[in-house]
Amino acid sequence: MLLEILAITDDQYHVKELASKIMQIQNYVDYIHIREKSKTARELLTLLELLQESGVPKRKIVVHDRLDVALVTGIENIHLPGHGLTINRVREKFPFMRIGCSVHSYEEARKSEQDGVDYVMYGHVFETNCKAGLAPRGLEELHKIKERLSIPVFAIGGITPDRMNEIKVDGIAVMSGIFSAENPAEAARDYSEKCKEMTTHGKIL
């Protein structure tokens, strides 16, 4: 099984520049998670329209929190933050959607699975500038979640290609490692090549 890569936007670029960066990396990642908290609904709509006009498949796009924007643009992947809409309510009203959520413990992950989520994202696993001053949660709880849940588990936080061998889950989520890189496409390609290398050498079971 090939480790999946989810690239998360970092809310640092204007719409057109961000769209350009996403188009450059789209062939190296499995999902692009649009996490742009400072942008208005109209700006998000413009971004998603640019991506669709440029041929980025809808199946690759994940909308963070903004269910309204996802529905208007026909995106079926939604990621719910802890403070957002409840999994139960979204699942009840929109059973066709692929729903993910962020968790920070095994208990949260188990509850999310019971509520009907399609995948969980656990972190932060390693030290990262995105969570400066906060101690990483490490790998033990992550691997416990993977072992006990039946849904896909993604890891996030400080994950570099060099550290991917330590992670035994279904996928990784990367923000600064791609979008803060001098060359996002090259960075995304490095993650992609590492995934293929790990699969070839039997690291991923």
Rank of each mutant, 00 (worst) to 15 (best):
K144W: 06
T128H: 01
G123H: 01
H143I: 04
H143S: 09
V153T: 13
E166L: 14
R137S: 06
K131I: 04
D162N: 12
F126Q: 03
A155N: 05
G123Y: 00
M121N: 14
K131L: 09
R148G: 10
N165M: 10
M121V: 15
K144C: 06
E127S: 14
H124M: 10
R163F: 03
A135K: 15
M121W: 01
I156S: 03
A135T: 11
F154N: 07
P161D: 09
G158K: 03
H124Y: 12
P152A: 07
I156Q: 05
V153P: 08
K168G: 02
G123L: 04
P161F: 12
M164K: 08
G133S: 03
I145E: 03
I159W: 01
E147A: 13
E147S: 14
K146F: 11
S150R: 14
K144T: 14
A132Y: 11
L139H: 09
G133A: 08
P136W: 02
G133T: 03
V153Q: 10
G138V: 07
I145S: 02
G123T: 03
L142E: 10
P161L: 02
R163V: 00
A135N: 09
E166Q: 15
I159G: 08
I145V: 11
R163L: 14
E127P: 09
V125R: 00
V169Y: 02
I159N: 04
E147L: 10
E166T: 00
V153H: 12
C130M: 13
E147Y: 10
E140F: 05
G138K: 02
G138Q: 08
A155Y: 01
A155F: 00
R163H: 07
E147R: 15
G123V: 02
I151F: 14
G138P: 06
G133K: 07
G158V: 01
E141A: 15
I159P: 13
I145A: 08
F126H: 06
Y122W: 12
L149P: 06
K146R: 15
G133D: 04
A155S: 04
N165Y: 13
M164W: 07
T160A: 11
I167H: 00
A132C: 00
G138C: 09
V125G: 00
I151S: 07
S150Q: 15
F126V: 06
E141H: 10
E147Q: 15
T128Q: 07
C130P: 00
L142M: 13
N165E: 15
